[in-house]
């Protein structure tokens, strides 16, 4: 029966008919599984002449200097505490900064992501943090040879442990799809005020400590199950053309 219904010539015809479909499906699955490797690289190659100029790069450099000054005070305080916990100093593990142009921006809508014009070949790896002028922008979620994808702090998928270094109140910064992420405090009675600087927490395993993130804009002390606030980000994703990536 089997031989009657699927003779050699019929099998050959079936194979010839479906072979291109198998190839196409296989190719698309490869693109999917590699998170667009090849595809975003072609996009980066084609759009290279239209990448943003160097002006904002210089601006970022000067903003970074100001940011480093602001961080100095935080680090000096933190250093005292960390000296007692020697093994927790993760700054020594972090090394270079890589500058990269933003080649695609989807900061509105359902996805809050950036594509940047440098990737594996520049030493960028998954989970490296991305810094804009003055503060944290997000972190790398996938990398191709010449591009990398950044998950913005505003994305609903984003969760970053932060603290108010002034009084060491810890919290979780949750992306809500808007330009102002939600800060959920872990303490039921946080002693914080609008205007307090929010920076990354020393207890975070994802990001290095004390990178400035934003400023508290408003606080709802009556919110349940714990008080929460809105944070105005220092580095607004919609205005950024160049970013710095802290590589491991």
């Amino acid at each position: 029966m089997r031989a009657r219904f699927f003779g050699a010539s019929q099998r050959g015809r079936l194979l010839r008919r479906f072979f291109p479909w198998f190839c196409l499906t296989g190719a698309l699955f490869v693109v999917r599984l590699t998170k667009g490797a090849g595809f975003t690289d072609i996009y980066a190659f084609l759009t290279r002449p239209f990448w943003p100029g160097q002006a904002q790069r210089v601006w970022i450099q000067s903003a970074l200097n100001a940011e480093h000054q602001a961080k100095l005070n935080l680090l000096q305080q933190e250093n005292k505490r960390l000296k007692m916990l020697l093994s927790l100093d993760r700054n020594s593990v972090r090394q270079g900064l890589v500058s990269a142009a933003v080649i695609s921006r989807r900061q509105g809508g359902w996805w809050h992501q950036l594509e940047i014009g440098k990737g594996l070949l520049s030493g960028i790896a998954k989970d490296d943090i991305v810094i804009g002028p003055g503060g944290l922008v997000g972190r790398i979620t996938s990398v191709t040879p010449s591009t990398a994808r950044v998950l913005l702090l505003t994305s609903p998928s984003s969760r970053v442990a932060v603290w108010i270094s002034r009084n060491q109140q810890h919290g979780m910064l949750l992306g809500t799809g808007t330009n102002r992420p939600q800060l959920v405090f872990l303490n039921s009675e946080p002693e914080v005020l609008p205007g307090d600087l929010v920076s990354t927490s020393p207890v975070s395993s994802l990001v290095p400590p004390n990178v400035p993130v934003g400023v508290i804009q408003s606080i709802d002390f009556d919110a349940l199950p714990s008080p929460n606030g809105r944070v105005q980000l220092i580095a607004a994703p919609e205005l950024i053309d160049w970013v710095q990536i802290k590589t491991r």
Partner: peptide
């Protein structure tokens, strides 16, 4: 499939 590949996981 292609659009999933160019978007963040989720």
């Amino acid at each position: 499939l292609i659009l999933d590949a160019i978007s963040i996981d989720g």
